[in-house]
Amino acid sequence: MTVPQSELQQIVSALQKSGLTVESVEDGALIQHGESRVALFAEADHQGGVIVRLHLDLDLYVEEDSLPDILMGMNLLNQGLDYGTLNLDPVDTDEEGEDSGVAFAVLGRSVLWLPDLGVAELDRLREHLRRFEAEVTDAMERTLHGSKGLSA
């Protein structure tokens, strides 16, 4: 008798079999895609299917006093993204000084609902993963290295 694999284990196995470098972590997986590492989290949807969340840490940080300009730039960038969005997450700092402002990490995020974990849906996940990483990375590269880049 075989014990059924969790949704995450099934996804990790399928991605590894397709040639991607996938490392299991506590509650998710890290997928090495080029120079990027995308975090993947999966959970069963109570209405059926599987919800997959993707997170791409862009190693970009924003100080609190830059937020108005950054938010406007991110809003414009998000309008052109089809496979994900850019979000700001507060960063915990160890410095407890009164002058230390809040810093935010810029992250790419995406959510995909799969009705099942069949071959067609896992292929769709791989394509979504590829496009998400490429789209977010390309948007940030163009912005940071273009003449009208975001300034943080």
Rank of each mutant, 00 (worst) to 15 (best):
Q47I: 05
L30V: 14
E43C: 09
D27E: 11
E43S: 09
D27W: 14
D27I: 06
L30S: 12
E26C: 09
K17R: 13
R37T: 07
F41N: 07
A29F: 00
A39W: 06
S36K: 07
A29V: 01
G28T: 00
Q32F: 08
L20I: 03
E26P: 06
A42L: 08
V38E: 01
E23S: 14
G48E: 10
G48N: 11
G34R: 15
Q10P: 04
H33G: 02
E23F: 14
G34H: 06
E35L: 13
H33P: 00
S6D: 04
H46A: 15
V25Y: 10
Q32I: 14
S18N: 08
Q16N: 01
A44N: 12
G34F: 07
E43T: 10
D27G: 13
V12I: 14
D45V: 04
V50L: 02
F41S: 12
D45S: 10
L8S: 05
A29P: 00
R37P: 05
A39Q: 15
G48C: 05
Q16E: 04
V25C: 09
V50W: 01
G19N: 08
A42S: 09
E7C: 04
H33W: 07
L30N: 15
Q16R: 01
E43R: 06
V50C: 06
S18P: 05
F41R: 06
